[in-house]
Amino acid sequence: MKTLVSSLTALLTALVCLTSCITEDVPDNSPAGNFEALWRTLDEHYCFFREKGEEYGLDWSAVGAEYRDAVVPGMSSEQLFEVMAAMLAELRDGHVNLSAAHDVARYGAWFDDYPANYSDSLERIYLGRSEDYAEAAGLQYRVLDDNIGYLRCESFNTTPGDGNLNEIMRRLAVCDGLIVDIRHNGGGMLTAAQKLASLFVNERTLGGYMSHKTGPGHDDFSEPEPIWIEPFEALRWQKPVAVLTNRRTYSAANSFTMFVKGLPRVAVVGDRTGGGAGMPFTSELPNGWSVRFSACPMYDRDGQCTESGVDPDLEVDITAADYARGVDTIIETARAWLRQAAADGLD
């Protein structure tokens, strides 16, 4: 009996000992602690250190050492925010943000340094008044006067339903070509980008590759795996398509461009896209500030990272003269290419 009770007691004690605590070592809520938490979060989770190191010599350890010196006890929240924002800007990544109650730190040189190549005034000229165009699932569309279909997709925040896409295709089926305008489309859901791309493939098509981090090391990544574009199961577009891009074509819109570029009957027209090829994750700091960063890198079908954008097939800017005349040079270039493609039998 005594042995039995002793055995049970020993077993219970062993079970209790097995329940050791699993915790995360988080720096304290001080300026230095929050700085370390931010630097470490990026160090362990950010996905483009290698690409940016090769592109412009980014050295995250050196960046941390440089900005760490600017963090001093007693500095105000605004001052700490400025130091952190400046450090994050070294990543040159539009998907990296630091959100505090008073401001959101963001990097905007990827579009600020380039022509806008888009104007909502020009868009209004081409789309017309509200009664002139149709709208379904956030997609605005009409037939232009040269029988070219124009589809404006300003965001991928909404995934269109099968019925939406089928009706859009049915109503634009009479057109000789189609313009898909994703300029100033800042992204949204990748599933929405895949869905729209599914209109332009007739068989399962490789759209690109995606990977993810497998550990905190800068080179800890999974093998890139394919992103397949499955053909839309109802009406699909079988004529020439011009996809309009500019530097603010970003994130999921950058991925859409990556999916469709190089497909038969498709031309990308306009400016290079802004990039944003890392699906962003969110974390937070001890002081409650939220931080967003690129986490899962994407590559085109040739295995090239598209973080810095996708080049157009026809590079064209809106000229100052065309702005003044109310003409969208990029749309007009696309219309000319579509007419020529239709004439050449590219369908």
């Binding site: 989770h45 996905c47 990748l190 599933t191 895949q194 995606m210 993810h212 981090k213 497998t214 550990g215 905190p216 800890d220 999974s222 795996e225 992103i227 397949w228 699906m279 994750f281 986490a295 899962c296």
Partner: peptide, 16 residues
């Protein structure tokens, strides 16, 4: 996995 998104898991079927 460490940095794996649920998009990869459930939309793309990438298991790791």
């Amino acid at each position: 996995h460490y940095g794996q998104s649920y998009y990869e898991l459930f939309s793309l079927g990438h298991y790791d």
